[in-house]
């Protein structure tokens, strides 16, 4: 049971890393091909920050009842 929970948490961490990697490469390619789409690049940054804050920083823990 405990081992299962740890495995699931590890898996979630890995999925977040994959998403972050894809988004980072995406924004890099977008910039390299010469596009200066501010809004798209800023949207990608916000999306990446959301994944880190939600899944790595565990923001929901802050609102857990004592």
């Amino acid at each position: 049971m405990e081992e299962n929970g740890k495995k699931q948490a590890y898996q979630m961490g890995f999925y977040v890393l994959v998403v972050l990697a894809v988004l980072t490469i995406g924004e890099y390619l977008l910039a390299v091909v010469g596009a200066t789409w501010w809004s798209v690049l800023i949207f990608i940054a916000i999306l990446k920050a959301y994944f880190v804050v939600q899944n790595y920083m565990h923001l929901p823990r802050l609102f857990e009842s004592e």
Binding site: E27, A31, W38, A45, V52, Y56, M57
Partner: peptide, 24 residues
């Protein structure tokens, strides 16, 4: 320690496009 480290990461998530990608 983990929350602080991830925060430093989040800051760079915004600094990276601002310094390296956005604009000419």
């Amino acid at each position: 320690c983990a929350v602080y480290w991830h925060f430093v990461d989040v800051v760079w998530i915004f600094f990276y496009p601002a310094l390296y990608l956005i604009g000419t």
